[in-house]
Design a protein around this nucleic acid. Sequence first.
DNA 1: ATCATATTGTTACTATTTTCACAATAACCA
DNA 2: TGGTTATTGTGAAAATAGTAACAATATGAT
Lengths: 208, 208
Amino acid sequence: MITNKNCIIRLSRYKNALYRLQALGFVKVFSDNLADSVGSTASQVRKDFSLFGISGNKKGGYQIDILLEKLNSILGKDQLQKVIVIGAGHIGSALMRYRGFEKEGIKILGGFDIDPAKINRNSVVPILPLEEVKAFIKAQGIKIAILAVPDIAAQQAVEMITGAGIKGVLNFAPLRLKDVEGCIINNVNLEIELENLIYFVNVEAKIK
Amino acid sequence: MITNKNCIIRLSRYKNALYRLQALGFVKVFSDNLADSVGSTASQVRKDFSLFGISGNKKGGYQIDILLEKLNSILGKDQLQKVIVIGAGHIGSALMRYRGFEKEGIKILGGFDIDPAKINRNSVVPILPLEEVKAFIKAQGIKIAILAVPDIAAQQAVEMITGAGIKGVLNFAPLRLKDVEGCIINNVNLEIELENLIYFVNVEAKIK
DNA sequence: ATCATATTGTTACTATTTTCACAATAACCA
DNA sequence: TGGTTATTGTGAAAATAGTAACAATATGAT
């Protein structure tokens, strides 16, 4: 099994690039085209494909529709992905309203918050009381959650939802969460992303 | 110069962990404590420090306050970082309202949007017309921008702001941006983050 | 039908990152 | 003061990731 996160991220980028190429009317693609589109190298593209047993045609490149089918299957995009959002603060609400997920086959079924003032069962993405989250996860068979609660609430929230069946968490709380048995946690730490950028900008400035 | 992004991200995590330990009353810390707090290894911690010439005391560990000073200096946290946000849609607005940046010494001075309906010069973070962004960047000496515009607007926006002096962009538009001379672009692609999580959750499910 | 060419698929190589192992040594104890 | 112990700092080893090179081969031209 491939455990290289960057490799999987590249697959997503290939997929996105292929849709763009397809929209432009292309039917086939060569490894170097694809490399250009995603800022990689032709070797890397072919290597990545070979890792997943994806093959093209000597001198003929890869047929885009077949390639997309295979990538989509690897990335689990052959079925609608149901997701919930925990925390209806600024970030959580923005994610619930964000249109970008839909066209990727990712559907946010509900948001959950502890604050009664935030509850709204009639909005496009209903916002429900946190007490209902366990039942909701079980009833809908949800595996993936986005966590956008304050740091102090994060660990407890993760334990609650993993107990109910969540297997993957995209964590926006600015805090490393202790691993929970049987649940993968990917952290998106906005402060750290910015700090990182600032570091490299400063390094560049010093070089010059 | 250290160019390993993961290493710099670890430094941020160490820093955050150190503040938590300090808040708990700790004065010194050992490499294995710190490793535990950030989910790393003691070797990794010491190696990272050694790369930056940070040294501790044999048998005495590291003094937290000194360590924090050094990390903060490396990460550019000894001065307020001024940032602007381009795009006042869901994500952009959420980032402008997000409180987490402030306590990291990151101050969002303004938001910019092309839509006149979004302009609000009197909000906590003023939202100004995009036409004013170049003048604003120059007047305030801003180096870092957060880009939260639709994909089709992203490339043009980057060119506009780098022309005015921006050196680093944190890009939330779901699109790979072509590198611009003299400007570092860090991409945060929420769809790809979720896809990645979904892939690994599915892999785990298959193993079992 | 043969040849030249373009492109894949894979293996070997290189670079980077992480882990290991242990000498050096400061702190503590008797 | 001398011996023991805990912890650092680093150089070497291992693991992982990425790049390059090229044989295999399908395609198209003559």
